[in-house]
Design a binder for these strands. Structure first.
Lengths: 265, 265
DNA sequence: GTTGGACTATGACGTTACGTCACCCTTTAG
DNA sequence: CTAAAGGGTGACGTAACGTCATAGTCCAAC
């Protein structure tokens, strides 16, 4: 009843190398090893191999299989844990797929939105933002915004989309940090927020006070909020706190000045 | 405007090691390398890094990113190819998830089907199969089946499920072979079918003629067909041909004998 | 007895995208 | 001038084997 490696391999539908591998990691030692080093497998080893291969097909990593088979780890709960990981993997795949789709749509000119419509929409979004800025910070701030915007006159649609990607990447990193439990006023968050501040500066001559107040704007302004929320549902609140913390801790904005800003509305 | 490794790493949110890696594989050489070996990155490298990271987040492997950026490979079609691979990955994950769920359900006693119901269902399926065998091959064959079945008297539900897994694994390997374009009468298919034949022999004293006729049974008998089709939609037809080929080429069943079998109905 | 083909064995490298030492050299602030 | 940052180059580890390269073993045929 003893089988050689190649016989077992043929019966089980695996390679000889796989059997050698399983031996070397101690997952499936042969029942007997002849003096010449040849491996021979008996019925118990064949049965164990069946169980190994079943779990392997379910995507369970080999060390986990060893635990389940040897240490009498509960098979059901082990599989349930594994199932949870598979689900997470699938969610990650879905996220990536969504991002790929959006990217393809953007790059391929998005038939549903022509360039004209794109720029019209951009212009509309800008004027809504301008009005909001004027409401909050006064006409001067809105004019500063318009002036900075003029610097983008020569931009192509691709330029905008490239910049959008860059911003989205930053938001993704913030979302990842939030996921890891990073507080919005921690040093790590301030590092990230600094990049946000730098980005904002390129489009708007923000002062410590106006940057502080931006924390409110991204919560209230529908356009801004939805951009951020599209990356992570709970990111707007986190970013708002981070922005205020950055303005206070790194830009020296004092809470007392807050009224000044409000008054300038 | 030149940045050191750590500056670039901080700005882009990657590790220094990653930049060294990208340099070593030629994906992102620094704009300038000082005599002391220090790497310095300029604006073009930062922009390239942005594009690299965007694609990386989309799950594109680094060599593919290099092709896209350097060889002017069409970005959109490259992403579409990538998208197709992601979809395939997700399908694979879904398949595994389904298998895991079925396995968990089986192992945890499947509340929806009690042991009593399980054995009742088993008994029903058996009697349907027995009737089918009697119709096709005569009462003697059906009795042989019953006799073999008695050998499983002491089996627990787990034993049955273990054996079902074994059978399913064989069917999976056949499905994989079929997917690769293996013909059901090729040598490789005969190897696999031999294992099917061995398995059948344990439950039923098949003769070359009856095994040949089993090719029809798995197509016509609803229970058998659905078991096989649940693994792969098009497997029943493939296996039917493989069974007939095996009976002829390995068991020496002659086509002329076919009438004999039919007559015995 | 030997020859040859089939089978077996043991390394060791390759794969993916870096993380993590270990060890050494510059630059810079005090 | 010294010590702390920060930079550099290997080299190993990761998951699960595939794929050589090299060498010993077995068995049937001559």
């Amino acid at each position: 009843m003893e089988r050689t490696v190649s016989e077992v391999a043929r019966l089980a539908g695996v390679s000889v190398r796989t059997l050698r591998h399983y031996d070397s990691i101690g997952l499936l030692p042969p029942g007997r090893v002849a003096p010449n080093g040849y491996r021979y497998y008996g019925r118990p080893e064949l049965l164990r191999l069946q169980r190994i291969l079943l779990l392997r097909e379910l995507g369970v990593p080999l060390p986990a299989i060893a635990r389940i088979l040897d240490e009498q780890d509960d098979e059901v709960s082990a599989l349930q844990d594994h199932r949870a990981q598979l689900l997470q993997e699938r969610r990650r795949l879905d996220d990536i797929l969504g991002a790929v789709d959006r990217t393809i749509a953007g790059l391929s000119g998005d038939e549903t939105v022509t360039d004209d419509e794109f720029f019209a929409g951009l212009s509309q979004a800008r004027s809504r933002l301008r009005d909001d800025l004027a409401d909050r910070f006064g006409v001067a701030a809105a004019e500063g915004f318009e002036k900075a915007v003029r610097a983008t006159d020569g931009w192509t649609r691709e330029d905008y989309e490239r910049m959008g990607d860059e911003g989205r990447r930053l938001l993704l990193r913030m979302a990842a940090a939030r996921d890891r439990g990073v507080r919005p006023d921690s040093a790590e968050a301030l590092e990230l927020t600094e990049q946000h501040y730098d980005g904002v500066l390129q489009l708007w001559p923000a002062t410590p006070a106006t940057y502080y107040a931006l924390g409110d704007l991204i919560l209230d302004n529908a356009d801004q909020r939805s951009i951020i929320a599209s990356v992570d549902e709970e990111l707007p609140e986190w970013l708002a706190v981070a922005i205020r913390a950055y303005a206070v801790q790194r830009l020296g904005f004092a809470q007392n000045d807050k009224k000044t800003v409000r008054r300038s509305v």
